[in-house]
């Protein structure tokens, strides 16, 4: 089931509208996280798991749900565009 699923992007972004007379400085690009659980739907049994120690550090027991967060605002702003 996992293989056919096309790779999704864990982070997406959009550029908010900015009017001509907007006094505030432009925000530029805003990002939002789209973790795997949005795409997996109802969890199927017997998914591959991390070891307990690894799971504790990764924040999830099942490998499919692991979602590494890398702050796009700090990383020069060019993250995986949705």
């Amino acid at each position: 089931m996992d293989q056919q699923r096309e790779r999704f992007t864990p982070m997406k972004s959009y550029v908010p509208f900015r009017g001509l007379f907007d006094p505030c400085p432009p925000i530029g690009e805003k990002y939002y996280s789209t973790p795997p659980n949005l795409y997996v739907g109802f969890q199927s049994p017997n998914l591959e798991q991390f070891t307990p120690q690894e799971a504790l550090r990764k924040g999830t027991l099942w490998k499919v749900f692991y979602d590494y967060y890398d702050n796009p605002y700090k990383r020069g702003g060019d993250s995986g565009h949705g």
């Binding site: 120690q53 799971a55 504790l56 999830t60 027991l61 099942w62």
Partner: peptide, 12 residues
Amino acid sequence: EEIQAVDFVIDE
């Protein structure tokens, strides 16, 4: 740490 890891697995 072992206890923490095992309890995390239990919670999951």
